[in-house]
């Protein structure tokens, strides 16, 4: 298992290639193989081989008690015609979009926390980081109680200001929003740390120069902070999107698979789970898994293309 993708990172960005400077052709003999082999063998067995196998599975139908039958591209044909597939893509995009809204907020919070001389800064960092270390299953159970339409404290808080709260988790549309809000809530911890590290790397002289030129705080933020922070923002964006595409645990634990709104709310990974595990159609599920892989790949490539427009590595 890879590390959950919320921690996965980055782009191989502008790393100077030091190998060239390592002197005239030298050979390390068999040493490199000894260094790499244990890891690489494990990766082959547990990751690369499974991917190849999944490709094969996607062209088969599984029997109840084992055995696969080759059915050609039937799973794929069914997938591209299945409205649930597109619904799941849309839901996943909506979720990602809401969670991504957390990034500007995180930039703002990080700039507050990293103000020089701010007291309790490390306490704030700890607080914002709490959701990141919480076990997703455990904390989703708590949110489920908080969102409860009849007894939850969210609707109670709304009732204090005269709003009759809905049944968040069992109303189509709202259920996805609720789960997204929890994703939003959990998205700050790591982002604030990474952005904070980026902020510290901005030379203070630049601010001083801007100040001497009479730039307003907003102007300094726009002209100094934003461009110099862009590599960190880009990195956070990538990990957030990849993490969002893996949405499953929270959806499962907060809504439950038997929830009537699930068909309208399910994410891509849930759609995979539903077909592979609940409906036991593992060949079709293999096709879905590969489709998820392709979609994440495309989205990531697009991001790397777009980064040239706004990410500043100088």
């Amino acid at each position: 298992m890879t590390l959950s993708l919320r921690t996965v990172r980055t782009p191989v960005v502008s790393t100077p290639d030091r190998r060239r400077s390592a002197g005239p052709a030298r050979t390390d003999g068999w040493w490199p193989w000894a260094f790499v082999a244990p890891l690489f063998l494990g990766v082959c067995v547990f990751y690369l081989w499974p991917i190849l196998q999944t490709v094969y599975f996607s062209f088969t139908k599984f029997g109840v008690f084992g055995g696969q039958t080759w059915i050609g591209a039937a799973n794929w044909a069914r997938l591209v015609q299945d409205p649930d597939f597109y619904r799941a893509i849309l839901n996943t995009l909506i979720y990602s979009a809401i969670v991504l809204l957390g990034i500007p907020v995180a930039v703002f919070l990080a700039s507050l926390i990293n103000r020089p001389g701010l007291r309790f800064a490390s306490l704030y960092r700890v607080l914002f980081f709490l959701p990141y270390i919480a076990m997703p299953v455990a904390i989703s159970l708590v949110w489920r109680m908080m969102f409860n339409g009849d007894f939850g404290i969210i609707n109670y808080a709304l009732s204090l200001v005269g709003i009759d709260g809905p049944h968040w988790l069992s109303t189509p549309g709202l259920a996805l929003i609720s789960v997204s809000l929890v994703g939003f809530w959990g998205s700050f911890g790591l982002a604030i740390l990474i952005l904070g590290a980026g902020l510290k790397n901005i030379p203070v002289e630049l601010y001083e120069a801007a100040e001497l030129d009479g730039a307003t705080p907003w102007r300094r933020f726009r002209s100094v902070t934003v461009p110099l922070l862009s590599p960190s923002v880009f990195f956070v964006t990538i990990i957030t999107i990849i993490g969002s595409f893996q949405l499953f645990d929270a959806l499962y634990a907060m809504l439950g698979p038997n929830n009537p709104v699930m068909p309208a709310t399910q994410s891509l990974v849930f759609y995979f789970y539903e077909n592979g595990f609940i409906r036991n159609d593992k060949g079709f599920a293999a096709a879905i898994a590969l489709a998820i892989l392709v979609i994440i790949g495309i989205v990531t490539v697009i991001q790397f293309r777009l980064q040239k427009r706004w990410v500043n590595y100088d």
Binding site: F62, G63, F65, G67, G276, F277, I278
Partner: peptide, 25 residues
């Protein structure tokens, strides 16, 4: 059935059908 299906199902994943040879059917 479905609720606990999470657990059940998930494991179901790996399971059936994978085994070489595969009796049954």
């Amino acid at each position: 059935l479905r609720r606990r299906g999470w657990l059940t199902g998930i494991a179901a994943l790996g399971l059936a059908g994978l085994l070489a040879g595969c009796a049954g059917g």
